[in-house]
Simulated scan of single mutants.
Amino acid sequence: MEVQALLITFREVLEALLIVGIITSYLKRVNHTKYTKYVWLGAGLAVVASVAVALLFQVVFTGFAAMGSEIYLKISIMFISALLLTQMVFWMAEHSREMKKNVEGKMDRFITTGNVVGMVIHSFLVVLREGVETVFFFAAITGGNIGAAMQGWGAITGVVIAAFVSYIFFKGTMRVPLKTFFQVTGAFIILIAAGLLVQGISMLQDLNIIGSVMPHVYDLTWLLPEHPIDYDHYLRDHGVAPLLSGDVGVFLKALFGYSSMPSLEEVIAYVGYFVVIYLLITSRQSKTAKNEKQKNTNVEALQSETKHVI
């Protein structure tokens, strides 16, 4: 859970800090630092609102638990979080290149009209979006215990690393491109999303909401049990211990959705998820290459017409 919390918090906090940093840096560059306090006011209010959302979410979850329906809420959160995590990675990959230009364009309009309220609301919504996403993802990886994730070393470390990376980026001392950071962390986020998807399916099968054509495609308990209890049971039943500890299995299950005895549906969902991701990536790259080619063609045509006129 802590590693998941670290990666998620790092991504969300870094995205928020980058946008706020772009805004404040631009205001400094155009000699309008007097508006900086309004940007930070919006960001601060968003942090407070995010905490309020976390508390409200916890109250709702407790209400479901009192009705004995928390398991259905957990499953729903897992599926929605898997979708949101995937969307987050692709959104950042698509918009990171134009992010600076778009943010500065909005700031120009706010400065021109003297729209202080607009600045506050803009920074508020930017940070609030990241805060709400973090709350939702924490609920998914902890089974609803958001407070445990917020107070753990993973979330705290993620915030510290994100603040450090943001600081050295805007100080101009960062040598590794942010694109590389987002690609690496994005790969881990995708793995987490795949794990949540599979865990959701497993829980549905445990509740007999959906069946299984093949409950156990293979059994890797002899190599890596997914829980210390499975380790003990295997040792008791076979007289020999599995090669790896059940603690490792717990870690991998929490991080990537590892299962020592997955059903056929889990395997299909896991493999299918990555097939879809691969198709989306190749489609996006093909579209980008086509747009670049068209852009170059238009530039060449314009240059040719200019020479002809001259």
Rank of each mutant, 00 (worst) to 15 (best):
G147N: 09
W153H: 11
L252C: 07
I75S: 05
S96W: 02
P177V: 09
N291I: 05
M92S: 09
M78F: 13
V135S: 03
I190D: 05
R11L: 08
T180E: 01
G195Q: 05
A289D: 14
I277R: 13
W91H: 11
T221S: 11
L14S: 08
E94K: 14
I80H: 06
A16D: 02
A163M: 12
I210W: 10
V30W: 06
R11Q: 03
H238N: 14
A49T: 05
G272R: 03
G42R: 05
P225K: 14
P215W: 07
A16P: 03
M107G: 06
G114A: 10
G131K: 04
D237N: 14
P262H: 02
A162S: 07
P215A: 11
S263Y: 09
L302F: 15
V271A: 15
V267K: 01
V213E: 15
E133W: 01
T33Y: 02
V13A: 07
M78E: 15
F138C: 01
Y258L: 00
K179Q: 02
P215E: 10
F137S: 10
L45G: 06
Y38C: 00
V135R: 12
L264G: 06
I209R: 13
F57W: 11
T86G: 15
G186D: 01
P225G: 13
K28C: 00
L204M: 14
V39S: 02
I75R: 09
V117S: 04
Y258R: 06
Q58K: 12
P215K: 12
G144R: 09
G172R: 10
E292I: 08
L7Q: 05
S76V: 13
M174C: 01
I189F: 03
V135P: 05
A163S: 12
E226S: 12
M119G: 04
K307P: 03
L27Y: 00
I111D: 00
S76E: 07
V165K: 08
V47T: 11
S123H: 01
V53H: 03
G42F: 09
P242M: 04
V30G: 10
F136D: 07
L244N: 07
V47E: 05
I268V: 15
V60W: 14
E265K: 06
F188D: 10
D206M: 12
E98T: 15
G63K: 09
E104I: 06
K37R: 13
H216R: 14
K101N: 10
L128N: 12
V132F: 13
G63W: 05
V217R: 01
I190R: 03
L83K: 00
S263C: 11
L220G: 03
L279T: 01
A148D: 08
E133T: 02
V132P: 13
E98C: 04
I141T: 09
S283F: 09
S81Q: 03
M78H: 13
L235T: 15
V103M: 08
